[in-house]
Design a protein around this nucleic acid. Sequence first.
DNA 1: AATTATGTTGCGGT
DNA 2: AACCGCAACATAAT
Length: 287
Amino acid sequence: MPELPEVETVRLQLLYKLKGKAIKKTKVFERKSVGQNTHFEKTLSGKTISQIDRVGKLMIFCFAQEDNLFMLAHLKMTGQFFFSDKNGVMGGGHSVTKTDWQKLPNKHTRVAFTFSDNTNLYFNDMRKFGYLKLVNMEELQLIKSKFGPEPTSKNFDVLAFSKKLKNHRTSIKALLLNQSIVAGLGNIYVDETLFRAGVLPTRLANQVTKSEAGKIARFGGLIMNKAISVGGTTFQHFTDTTGKVGNYTKQLQVFGKQNTPCPKCGNLIKKVRVAGRGTHYCPHCQK
DNA sequence: AATTATGTTGCGGT
DNA sequence: AACCGCAACATAAT
């Protein structure tokens, strides 16, 4: 589930915990989760995490004294990270049940790292869609170049976005899910954004006016920044080390609210299938 | 018990 | 090129 706000929340928590730590040992339980790379463990041995960046929903681990090695981490639908030290476990990813973190590693643990101070990082991923992948600078640049701008960015070019919409005749929902158009929105925040902007998910992208495109961009950024500020929609953390507790779930207006009254007009929220995804909207407020 | 849904993305086919 | 549908996989809910 993690969309941009959730990934950003996880990134910040991991950065706080992992910056400066040297990898002592890596254990791969599921080779598929590291792109079948048989040198994964050896390559990371002794490397010190210096930074964690992010583009869209993709995290990018950087290492000290290494300008040509990066570890990409994509959570896809069910990926999670857990960090454990003598104080307990902290986790981030999709929603978590007790058994996920009470005992680690467990049956969903795909990769485990032990650092030189004997703290641990676990990558869990029930459905094995997510991955950790080692790349060089050239590969990283290529991957980065495929992402569109993020609506959360101050420099987001609304006019360029509006013009881009004119080139497509698929639904606005499908386009907002396309990470090469705008990066970071997923199924939940697309529905929330279109509700706030008053635009039906089924509207063809090339029929969206400049004014509506502006609203979509503005609300998309606003909603995701707000979600980041409260720790995302589905992120749960357990031994709270930062003092930040929060959950955007409470602020959802339409997602998962089918057959309940619209918060603006009171008509019932509908759920249909658009672009192959469950889609929630208000038939009265969205045109 | 079989079917359907789930937060993502990349692929192959039209 | 743009777009659709589905596959990747596991689990919970209907």
